[in-house]
Design a protein around this nucleic acid. Structure first.
Length: 276
DNA sequence: ATCACGACCTGGAGGC
DNA sequence: TGCCTCCAGGTCGTGA
Protein backbone atom coordinates (compact mmCIF):
# COMPACT_ATOMS: atom_id res chain seq x y z
CA UNK A 1 0.00 0.00 0.00
CA UNK A 2 2.00 2.82 1.26
CA UNK A 3 4.87 4.37 -0.56
CA UNK A 4 5.90 7.98 -0.33
CA UNK A 5 2.82 9.51 -2.02
CA UNK A 6 0.41 7.48 0.09
CA UNK A 7 2.17 8.21 3.38
CA UNK A 8 2.46 11.89 2.49
CA UNK A 9 -1.25 11.96 1.60
CA UNK A 10 -2.07 10.52 5.02
CA UNK A 11 0.19 13.08 6.65
CA UNK A 12 -1.53 15.96 4.87
CA UNK A 13 -5.03 14.73 5.59
CA UNK A 14 -4.15 14.41 9.26
CA UNK A 15 -3.69 18.18 9.45
CA UNK A 16 -7.02 18.78 11.23
CA UNK A 17 -5.65 16.78 14.16
CA UNK A 18 -2.98 19.40 14.77
CA UNK A 19 -3.21 20.89 18.26
CA UNK A 20 -5.66 18.24 19.38
CA UNK A 21 -5.15 16.96 22.91
CA UNK A 22 -4.74 13.23 23.53
CA UNK A 23 -7.29 12.29 26.18
CA UNK A 24 -6.78 8.52 26.22
CA UNK A 25 -4.87 5.74 24.52
CA UNK A 26 -6.27 2.27 24.09
CA UNK A 27 -5.45 -0.92 22.24
CA UNK A 28 -7.43 -3.89 21.04
CA UNK A 29 -6.72 -5.68 24.29
CA UNK A 30 -4.35 -8.58 23.90
CA UNK A 31 -0.62 -7.88 23.89
CA UNK A 32 0.08 -6.31 20.56
CA UNK A 33 2.62 -7.66 18.23
CA UNK A 34 3.03 -6.30 14.78
CA UNK A 35 6.48 -6.21 13.20
CA UNK A 36 7.59 -5.29 16.67
CA UNK A 37 5.73 -5.18 19.96
CA UNK A 38 3.62 -2.07 20.47
CA UNK A 39 4.54 -0.52 23.84
CA UNK A 40 1.02 0.55 24.60
CA UNK A 41 1.59 1.38 28.28
CA UNK A 42 4.59 3.57 27.54
CA UNK A 43 2.67 5.25 24.73
CA UNK A 44 -0.21 5.98 27.07
CA UNK A 45 2.02 7.35 29.80
CA UNK A 46 3.93 9.59 27.44
CA UNK A 47 1.05 10.95 25.39
CA UNK A 48 -2.12 11.35 27.44
CA UNK A 49 -2.76 14.95 28.36
CA UNK A 50 -0.48 16.32 25.65
CA UNK A 51 -1.20 17.91 22.32
CA UNK A 52 -0.27 17.00 18.76
CA UNK A 53 2.24 19.63 17.74
CA UNK A 54 3.65 18.27 14.49
CA UNK A 55 3.10 15.81 11.67
CA UNK A 56 6.22 14.68 9.89
CA UNK A 57 7.27 12.03 7.43
CA UNK A 58 10.61 10.30 7.08
CA UNK A 59 10.50 8.11 3.99
CA UNK A 60 7.54 5.79 4.50
CA UNK A 61 7.37 6.51 8.23
CA UNK A 62 5.03 9.00 9.87
CA UNK A 63 6.01 10.89 13.00
CA UNK A 64 3.29 12.44 15.10
CA UNK A 65 4.94 14.94 17.41
CA UNK A 66 3.18 15.08 20.75
CA UNK A 67 3.84 17.29 23.75
CA UNK A 68 7.27 18.54 24.55
CA UNK A 69 9.49 15.62 23.70
CA UNK A 70 7.64 12.60 22.34
CA UNK A 71 6.72 11.38 18.90
CA UNK A 72 4.65 8.44 17.76
CA UNK A 73 6.43 6.52 15.02
CA UNK A 74 3.97 4.92 12.61
CA UNK A 75 4.54 2.69 9.59
CA UNK A 76 1.60 1.42 7.58
CA UNK A 77 3.27 -1.77 6.40
CA UNK A 78 1.21 -3.22 3.57
CA UNK A 79 -2.33 -2.95 4.84
CA UNK A 80 -2.18 -0.32 7.56
CA UNK A 81 -4.63 2.54 7.85
CA UNK A 82 -4.28 5.61 10.04
CA UNK A 83 -7.57 7.44 10.24
CA UNK A 84 -9.00 10.48 11.94
CA UNK A 85 -12.62 9.71 12.77
CA UNK A 86 -15.55 10.66 14.93
CA UNK A 87 -15.27 8.70 18.16
CA UNK A 88 -18.76 7.29 17.59
CA UNK A 89 -17.83 5.78 14.23
CA UNK A 90 -17.83 2.02 14.11
CA UNK A 91 -14.42 0.49 14.68
CA UNK A 92 -12.82 -1.24 11.73
CA UNK A 93 -11.63 -4.83 12.13
CA UNK A 94 -7.98 -5.15 13.20
CA UNK A 95 -7.92 -1.79 14.91
CA UNK A 96 -4.85 -2.08 17.10
CA UNK A 97 -4.19 1.35 18.54
CA UNK A 98 -6.57 4.24 19.21
CA UNK A 99 -5.66 7.74 20.35
CA UNK A 100 -8.75 9.46 21.74
CA UNK A 101 -8.63 13.20 21.03
CA UNK A 102 -10.57 16.15 22.36
CA UNK A 103 -13.70 17.34 20.54
CA UNK A 104 -14.97 13.79 20.13
CA UNK A 105 -12.43 12.58 17.64
CA UNK A 106 -10.12 9.57 17.47
CA UNK A 107 -6.97 8.64 15.60
CA UNK A 108 -7.16 4.95 14.80
CA UNK A 109 -4.51 2.61 13.49
CA UNK A 110 -5.75 -0.59 11.88
CA UNK A 111 -3.71 -3.19 10.03
CA UNK A 112 -5.00 -6.67 9.13
CA UNK A 113 -1.64 -8.06 8.11
CA UNK A 114 0.23 -6.51 11.02
CA UNK A 115 3.29 -5.63 8.99
CA UNK A 116 2.93 -2.11 10.31
CA UNK A 117 4.58 -0.52 13.26
CA UNK A 118 3.58 1.84 16.08
CA UNK A 119 6.23 2.91 18.53
CA UNK A 120 7.26 5.73 20.78
CA UNK A 121 10.39 7.74 20.08
CA UNK A 122 12.03 10.65 21.78
CA UNK A 123 11.75 13.77 19.68
CA UNK A 124 15.09 14.94 18.37
CA UNK A 125 16.51 11.46 18.83
CA UNK A 126 14.22 9.62 16.42
CA UNK A 127 17.14 8.80 14.16
CA UNK A 128 18.52 6.58 16.87
CA UNK A 129 15.63 4.22 16.33
CA UNK A 130 16.97 1.36 14.20
CA UNK A 131 14.13 1.72 11.71
CA UNK A 132 15.17 5.29 10.93
CA UNK A 133 18.90 5.09 11.41
CA UNK A 134 19.71 4.12 7.82
CA UNK A 135 17.01 5.99 5.93
CA UNK A 136 18.53 8.00 3.10
CA UNK A 137 17.48 11.37 1.67
CA UNK A 138 13.81 11.73 0.81
CA UNK A 139 12.97 10.85 -2.77
CA UNK A 140 11.34 14.26 -3.26
CA UNK A 141 14.26 16.26 -1.91
CA UNK A 142 16.41 18.29 -4.28
CA UNK A 143 19.49 16.31 -3.36
CA UNK A 144 18.18 13.36 -5.38
CA UNK A 145 19.95 14.41 -8.54
CA UNK A 146 21.31 12.38 -11.43
CA UNK A 147 24.74 12.91 -9.98
CA UNK A 148 23.70 11.52 -6.61
CA UNK A 149 22.05 8.45 -8.12
CA UNK A 150 25.02 7.87 -10.41
CA UNK A 151 27.40 8.02 -7.47
CA UNK A 152 25.28 5.65 -5.38
CA UNK A 153 24.66 3.23 -8.24
CA UNK A 154 28.31 2.93 -9.17
CA UNK A 155 29.08 0.87 -6.11
CA UNK A 156 26.19 -1.57 -6.37
CA UNK A 157 25.70 -4.73 -8.30
CA UNK A 158 21.99 -5.11 -7.62
CA UNK A 159 19.38 -4.54 -10.31
CA UNK A 160 18.16 -1.00 -10.87
CA UNK A 161 14.79 -2.12 -9.51
CA UNK A 162 16.34 -3.26 -6.21
CA UNK A 163 18.48 -0.13 -6.14
CA UNK A 164 15.39 2.08 -6.22
CA UNK A 165 13.76 0.03 -3.45
CA UNK A 166 16.75 0.49 -1.14
CA UNK A 167 15.55 3.00 1.45
CA UNK A 168 19.11 3.88 2.43
CA UNK A 169 19.76 5.16 -1.10
CA UNK A 170 16.60 7.21 -1.36
CA UNK A 171 13.58 7.09 0.90
CA UNK A 172 10.03 6.57 -0.24
CA UNK A 173 10.07 4.57 -3.47
CA UNK A 174 8.30 1.21 -3.23
CA UNK A 175 7.29 -1.53 -5.59
CA UNK A 176 4.74 0.41 -7.64
CA UNK A 177 6.78 3.52 -8.28
CA UNK A 178 10.01 1.61 -8.92
CA UNK A 179 8.39 -0.01 -11.96
CA UNK A 180 6.74 3.25 -12.99
CA UNK A 181 9.94 5.30 -12.76
CA UNK A 182 11.99 2.76 -14.73
CA UNK A 183 9.35 2.71 -17.44
CA UNK A 184 9.37 6.49 -17.63
CA UNK A 185 13.18 6.52 -17.83
CA UNK A 186 13.16 3.71 -20.44
CA UNK A 187 15.47 1.63 -18.29
CA UNK A 188 15.46 -2.13 -17.94
CA UNK A 189 14.60 -3.10 -14.34
CA UNK A 190 17.08 -5.99 -14.31
CA UNK A 191 19.97 -3.85 -15.46
CA UNK A 192 22.82 -3.75 -12.91
CA UNK A 193 22.95 -0.48 -11.02
CA UNK A 194 26.67 -0.12 -11.64
CA UNK A 195 26.04 -0.09 -15.38
CA UNK A 196 23.98 3.07 -15.14
CA UNK A 197 25.59 5.90 -17.09
CA UNK A 198 25.46 9.54 -16.06
CA UNK A 199 22.90 10.57 -18.66
CA UNK A 200 20.53 7.75 -17.69
CA UNK A 201 21.01 8.65 -14.04
CA UNK A 202 19.74 12.15 -14.82
CA UNK A 203 16.74 10.72 -16.62
CA UNK A 204 16.06 8.35 -13.74
CA UNK A 205 16.22 11.10 -11.12
CA UNK A 206 13.71 13.15 -13.10
CA UNK A 207 11.48 10.11 -13.61
CA UNK A 208 11.37 9.27 -9.91
CA UNK A 209 10.40 12.80 -9.02
CA UNK A 210 7.77 13.02 -11.72
CA UNK A 211 6.15 9.70 -10.86
CA UNK A 212 5.94 10.55 -7.16
CA UNK A 213 4.75 14.11 -7.77
CA UNK A 214 2.04 12.92 -10.13
CA UNK A 215 0.81 10.33 -7.67
CA UNK A 216 0.74 12.89 -4.89
CA UNK A 217 -1.39 15.13 -7.09
CA UNK A 218 -3.85 12.25 -7.42
CA UNK A 219 -3.89 11.49 -3.70
CA UNK A 220 -1.87 8.29 -4.00
CA UNK A 221 -2.55 4.85 -5.43
CA UNK A 222 -5.34 2.70 -3.99
CA UNK A 223 -5.06 -0.79 -5.38
CA UNK A 224 -6.66 -2.46 -2.42
CA UNK A 225 -6.19 -1.10 1.07
CA UNK A 226 -4.96 2.45 0.89
CA UNK A 227 -7.13 5.30 2.14
CA UNK A 228 -6.12 8.68 3.51
CA UNK A 229 -6.86 9.89 7.03
CA UNK A 230 -10.41 10.75 5.97
CA UNK A 231 -11.04 7.33 4.47
CA UNK A 232 -10.85 8.49 0.86
CA UNK A 233 -9.13 6.41 -1.79
CA UNK A 234 -6.44 7.86 -4.05
CA UNK A 235 -7.02 8.18 -7.79
CA UNK A 236 -3.52 7.38 -9.02
CA UNK A 237 -4.24 3.75 -9.94
CA UNK A 238 -5.96 5.14 -13.04
CA UNK A 239 -2.72 6.79 -14.09
CA UNK A 240 -0.30 3.89 -13.64
CA UNK A 241 1.45 3.16 -16.93
CA UNK A 242 2.75 -0.37 -16.31
CA UNK A 243 2.20 -1.53 -12.74
CA UNK A 244 -0.32 -4.37 -12.55
CA UNK A 245 -0.92 -4.03 -16.30
CA UNK A 246 0.66 -7.24 -17.62
CA UNK A 247 -0.64 -8.03 -21.10
CA UNK A 248 -1.88 -4.51 -21.75
CA UNK A 249 -0.21 -2.43 -24.46
CA UNK A 250 2.69 -0.20 -23.49
CA UNK A 251 1.39 3.39 -23.59
CA UNK A 252 4.46 4.36 -25.63
CA UNK A 253 4.97 1.58 -28.15
CA UNK A 254 1.99 -0.77 -27.80
CA UNK A 255 4.13 -3.82 -27.00
CA UNK A 256 2.50 -5.95 -24.32
CA UNK A 257 3.62 -5.11 -20.79
CA UNK A 258 5.43 -8.03 -19.20
CA UNK A 259 5.44 -9.08 -15.56
CA UNK A 260 8.64 -10.53 -14.14
CA UNK A 261 9.93 -11.21 -10.66
CA UNK A 262 13.01 -9.44 -9.34
CA UNK A 263 14.12 -10.31 -5.84
CA UNK A 264 10.76 -11.81 -5.14
CA UNK A 265 8.77 -8.74 -6.12
CA UNK A 266 6.48 -8.34 -9.10
CA UNK A 267 8.03 -6.05 -11.69
CA UNK A 268 6.29 -4.59 -14.73
CA UNK A 269 8.08 -3.35 -17.81
CA UNK A 270 7.86 -2.93 -21.55
CA UNK A 271 10.27 -5.39 -23.18
CA UNK A 272 10.64 -3.13 -26.23
CA UNK A 273 11.13 0.42 -25.12
CA UNK A 274 12.84 -0.24 -21.79
CA UNK A 275 15.95 -1.55 -23.47
CA UNK A 276 18.70 0.54 -21.98
C1' DA B 1 30.41 -5.86 3.13
C1' DT B 2 26.83 -7.13 -0.28
C1' DC B 3 23.29 -9.81 -1.98
C1' DA B 4 19.22 -13.26 -2.57
C1' DC B 5 15.74 -15.33 -0.24
C1' DG B 6 12.30 -16.61 3.05
C1' DA B 7 9.57 -15.21 6.96
C1' DC B 8 6.29 -12.39 9.01
C1' DC B 9 0.35 -12.02 8.61
C1' DT B 10 -4.55 -11.78 6.79
C1' DG B 11 -7.77 -11.70 3.14
C1' DG B 12 -9.26 -11.61 -1.60
C1' DA B 13 -9.35 -13.73 -6.17
C1' DG B 14 -9.47 -17.49 -9.10
C1' DG B 15 -9.46 -22.54 -10.24
C1' DC B 16 -11.73 -26.90 -9.65
C1' DT C 1 -21.18 -23.85 -1.79
C1' DG C 2 -16.29 -25.09 -0.26
C1' DC C 3 -11.54 -25.91 -0.40
C1' DC C 4 -7.16 -25.14 -2.40
C1' DT C 5 -3.37 -22.21 -4.12
C1' DC C 6 -1.47 -17.95 -5.19
C1' DC C 7 -0.82 -13.15 -4.60
C1' DA C 8 -0.50 -8.44 -2.32
C1' DG C 9 1.82 -1.49 -1.65
C1' DG C 10 7.25 -3.55 3.23
C1' DT C 11 11.03 -4.75 6.05
C1' DC C 12 14.14 -7.71 8.43
C1' DG C 13 17.07 -11.76 9.66
C1' DT C 14 19.62 -15.46 7.82
C1' DG C 15 23.23 -17.59 5.39
C1' DA C 16 26.14 -17.69 1.30
Amino acid sequence: MPELPEVETVRRTLAPAMNAKITAVRSSGKPLHMRRPVPIVAIREALVGHRIVGLRRIGKYLLVDIGRDSALLVHLGMSGRFRLVNARAEEAPHTHVVLALDRGRELRFSDPRRFGQVELVRRGQEREHPALADIGPDALEDEITGGYLFEQARRRKVSLKSFLLDQSVLAGVGNIYASEALWRAKLRPARRANRLDAASANTLAAAVRRVLDDSLTHGGTSLKDFVDADGNEGENADYLQVYDRAGEPCPRCRTKIRRSVIQGRATYACPTCQSR
